[in-house]
Amino acid sequence: MIEFTLTEDFIPLIQLLKATNLVGSGGEAQIVVTEGLVKYNGTVDYRKRLKVRKGDIVEFNNTPILVK
């Protein structure tokens, strides 16, 4: 599990995937989200501009990210 410490109120999902190095670029992040490969709090989510907040769990490629 990756623990990501949030310094703002939220981080867009695309930026979170890039910041945790699970994807190589913003374009790749958009593709994996639109293809339904990302889970947000246990449910597949297709929103690229999703605001991820403290306490949320995002999962991609069997790697969970806990946002703290």
Rank of each mutant, 00 (worst) to 15 (best):
M1H: 13
M1N: 12
M1S: 14
I2H: 03
I2T: 08
I2S: 02
E3Y: 06
E3F: 04
F4R: 01
T5R: 13
L6D: 02
T7L: 13
D9S: 12
F10E: 04
F10A: 06
I11Q: 00
P12F: 05
L13H: 02
L13A: 03
L13T: 03
I14N: 09
I14H: 03
Q15L: 08
L16G: 04
L16Y: 05
L16S: 03
L17Y: 07
K18W: 05
A19L: 10
A19E: 14
T20V: 14
T20N: 03
N21L: 10
V23K: 02
G24S: 14
G24N: 14
S25V: 03
G26P: 05
G27H: 04
G27K: 01
G27V: 02
G27R: 02
E28H: 09
E28W: 03
A29R: 04
A29K: 06
A29D: 08
A29T: 08
Q30A: 13
Q30L: 09
Q30G: 10
I31W: 03
V33E: 02
G36W: 07
G36S: 07
L37V: 09
V38L: 10
V38G: 07
Y40N: 10
Y40T: 11
N41I: 12
G42M: 14
G42H: 13
T43G: 01
T43Y: 10
V44I: 15
Y46D: 10
R47G: 01
R47V: 12
K48G: 06
R49D: 15
R49L: 12
R49F: 09
K51I: 09
K51N: 14
K51A: 13
V52R: 04
K54T: 11
D56H: 10
D56Q: 07
D56Y: 02
I57V: 15
I57W: 01
V58E: 07
E59N: 10
F60Q: 02
N61L: 11
N61A: 15
N61F: 11
N62S: 15
P64N: 07
P64K: 15
P64L: 01
L66I: 04
L66T: 05
